[in-house]
Structures are given as C-alpha cells and as structure tokens.
Simulated scan of single mutants.
Amino acid sequence: MTIVHGTPVSGLAVDDETRCAHYRTSRDVVALRFGCCESYYACHACHDAVADHDARVWPRSRFDEPAVLCGSCGETMTPETYFDAGHACPACDSPFNPGCLAHRDRYFESR
C-alpha cells in the first residue's frame, strides 16, 4: 500500500501519483474506490492481484460520495464529477488517461 496525498492506495508497484505495474503513463494518475471494500486501488488489475475477495463496482446509490482520487493533487471526486471532467482533474487540470473512463463499467455501476 502507498499513501498518496494522505489516502491509502493499494496495488502492485504503486507510485506516489497512483501509477502501478499495469498502467504507468504520465496520464495514469487516478485511483478508484471499490464497492466491495471501500478501498482505493490503482486499477482493476491491482484489485484482482492483491485483494482477497472479488471486486464489486461502486454502486449508483453512492454516486454522491467520493470514489475517484487524483494522484497528482489528492482531489477526491464523485463518479459523476469524474465522468464530466473531460479527462482532466477539475482541481489541478492534470490530464487523465481517457482509456480508464472507457472501461468505467469495471469500477462503477452502470445505468
């Protein structure tokens, strides 16, 4: 586990901006909170690799709670704020990997 701006983030080889063994580009600076354990992980593959349980997505009924962490500045966002952010942190404008949002069904309950 790595502490990123005061928030614990689990995964494999997680750096101080949430990059991991699976996603290491300059834009891979998002950690996501899972509904099964309410913990932040660098990615779905990290959860699969280190958690002792099956992953469950963040439920729609909790979309008003923070479930996304910007690894660049530590801002936490609700899923809707993240979806609407335009692939950049609304607090620090750090670019996010658009591929992460493309497979958001791995992290968030769909409509």
Rank of each mutant, 00 (worst) to 15 (best):
M1Y: 08
T2G: 11
T2D: 02
I3K: 05
I3C: 06
I3H: 04
G6L: 11
G6R: 01
T7C: 11
T7G: 04
P8S: 01
V9W: 05
V9F: 08
G11R: 08
G11T: 04
L12E: 10
L12N: 13
L12D: 09
A13C: 08
D15T: 13
D15P: 13
C20D: 15
H22R: 01
R24E: 07
T25L: 07
S26K: 00
S26I: 07
S26M: 05
R27K: 08
R27Q: 09
D28E: 14
D28W: 13
D28V: 12
D28L: 01
V30W: 07
A31Q: 10
L32H: 05
R33L: 11
F34L: 02
F34G: 03
G35Q: 03
C37V: 11
E38G: 01
S39G: 06
Y40C: 14
A42C: 06
C43A: 15
C43P: 06
H44E: 12
H44K: 10
H44P: 03
H44M: 08
A45K: 06
C46A: 07
H47S: 04
A49M: 07
V50R: 14
A51L: 08
D52F: 04
D52R: 10
H53G: 08
D54H: 13
D54E: 15
D54A: 15
A55N: 10
R56Y: 09
R56A: 15
R56N: 13
V57F: 11
W58E: 11
W58N: 09
P59Y: 13
R60C: 15
R60I: 14
S61D: 15
R62E: 12
F63E: 09
E65Y: 11
E65R: 14
A67E: 12
V68N: 14
L69C: 13
C70W: 08
C70E: 13
C70G: 04
G71T: 09
S72E: 15
C73Q: 06
C73L: 09
E75N: 07
E75L: 10
T78E: 03
T78N: 11
P79M: 11
E80L: 08
E80D: 03
T81W: 03
Y82S: 02
Y82T: 00
Y82L: 10
F83A: 05
F83K: 01
D84H: 07
D84C: 01
D84L: 08
D84Y: 03
A85T: 09
G86Y: 05
G86E: 05
G86L: 03
H87L: 13
A88D: 01
A88Q: 05
C89K: 01
C89Q: 00
A91D: 12
A91E: 11
C92E: 01
C92I: 06
D93P: 06
D93I: 07
S94P: 00
S94T: 15
S94H: 06
P95N: 04
F96A: 01
F96M: 13
N97K: 05
P98M: 04
P98H: 01
P98D: 00
C100N: 00
C100P: 06
A102I: 00
A102F: 15
R104C: 14
D105F: 04
D105I: 01
D105M: 10
F108K: 02
F108H: 06
E109S: 04
E109L: 03
E109Y: 02
S110H: 00
R111H: 00
